[in-house]
Amino acid sequence: MDWLQVVVLSIVQGLTEFLPISSSAHLILVPVLTPWDDQGLAFDVALHIGSLSAVVLYFRQELARMAVSWAGSLRGGGMDDDARLAWGVLLATLPVCVFGLAFRDAIEVGMRSPLIIAAGLIGFGLVLGYADWRHRGGRSEYQLRLRDVVLIGLAQALALIPGTSRSGITITAALLLGMSREGAARFSFLLSIPVIVLAGGLEVTGLIQEAATVDWPAVVVGTLLSGISAYLCIHYFLVVIKRVGMQPFVVYRLLLGAWLLWLFW
């Protein structure tokens, strides 16, 4: 890998992992639209480690409280807001685990075309735009009901389709269920933690089986750049949506989807 490829892929991963514009779509499109070879599993793992480190660092205080309360609930200590949120994150992760394992091969082989990505960007972008336009609620991530958690978890499974966006579809579902923009985004970011861990675990398994040579300088730089860009993305995204909502990201999705249709139709 050359250093321009390392920098571009790292920043693309860090930014798009948490923005509602589909990280998988962008990482699929970069090699399609450039002469670069596939970056390899080791670098993919590095990018996920960077993104995971960023979200864990950003929410470190909330995660610490959630871990303590969750452990206490296992010992019969009752359920407070942090314990309920922790259980909600775990429960909402189950659907994507089940569907991801069941349809992983079919998705990786048959659903990575630019046209499918374009359809996902446009279709789910319009739904996000509608959800943001009509949102009526103000509930935070600590006020989720069991029904909300189940529905957001089922929505998250749709993110297996390239172009959907994991953060985009979970924020969309949360807004439609009456959550505030910030609450929807924060719950989406917390949901990313087990998903990234699971995806990274599958990639590590593949990496061990592949036994390929690792470009360690690229891996280290990629991890750092992905982590820094992801941390900044989380911080400024939460600031931006308070002021202007999701519409700028909807417009971006529609323009990118239209451009892909024009290129590949």
Rank of each mutant, 00 (worst) to 15 (best):
S73I: 07
A199E: 02
R60Q: 11
S53F: 12
A86D: 10
V197A: 15
A211G: 14
L52S: 04
L4G: 05
E203V: 04
T34D: 10
W259N: 06
G163P: 01
F249P: 08
L101E: 02
P31H: 05
W259T: 11
L121F: 11
I234F: 04
D105Q: 13
Q247Y: 15
L225N: 08
D105Y: 06
Q247G: 09
G201E: 01
P248V: 13
V240A: 15
R253L: 15
L146C: 06
I171T: 00
V45Y: 14
D148R: 00
E17D: 04
T34Y: 13
I161Y: 10
V7T: 14
V250Q: 13
V127D: 07
A258W: 06
S10V: 00
Q247R: 13
G227K: 03
R112G: 05
A67D: 07
V244Q: 02
D81E: 11
R181Q: 09
L9H: 08
P114Q: 13
V32I: 15
L47Y: 11
G257R: 13
Y252H: 14
T205A: 14
G123D: 01
P20Y: 00
F264Q: 09
W133Q: 10
V98E: 06
I122M: 00
L33F: 03
L263F: 09
A230R: 02
D44M: 09
G163V: 07
G129V: 01
F59N: 04
R136S: 13
L225D: 11
I208P: 06
F18E: 01
P114A: 12
A173E: 10
R147S: 04
I241V: 06
R65H: 14
I21Q: 00
G227R: 13
I234T: 01
I193Q: 03
G50R: 04
Q39P: 12
V244N: 04
V6H: 08
A67Y: 10
L126H: 04
G257F: 13
G14K: 00
I49G: 08
F249C: 05
Y231I: 03
L128I: 08
L225A: 06
A174W: 03
R145H: 13
D2L: 10
L85G: 03
A218Y: 12
A184D: 01
G88D: 11
F99N: 05
R181K: 09
V8M: 14
L238Y: 00
A218M: 10
G78N: 05
G168I: 09
G153E: 03
D80K: 10
L41P: 12
A212G: 04
L224Q: 04
F43I: 09
F264I: 12
E182R: 08
L224W: 07
P20M: 00
S188K: 03
S24P: 02
S140C: 04
W216F: 11
H48T: 08
H135S: 06
S192F: 04
M246Y: 11
A42H: 09
I208K: 08
D132I: 01
V68T: 15
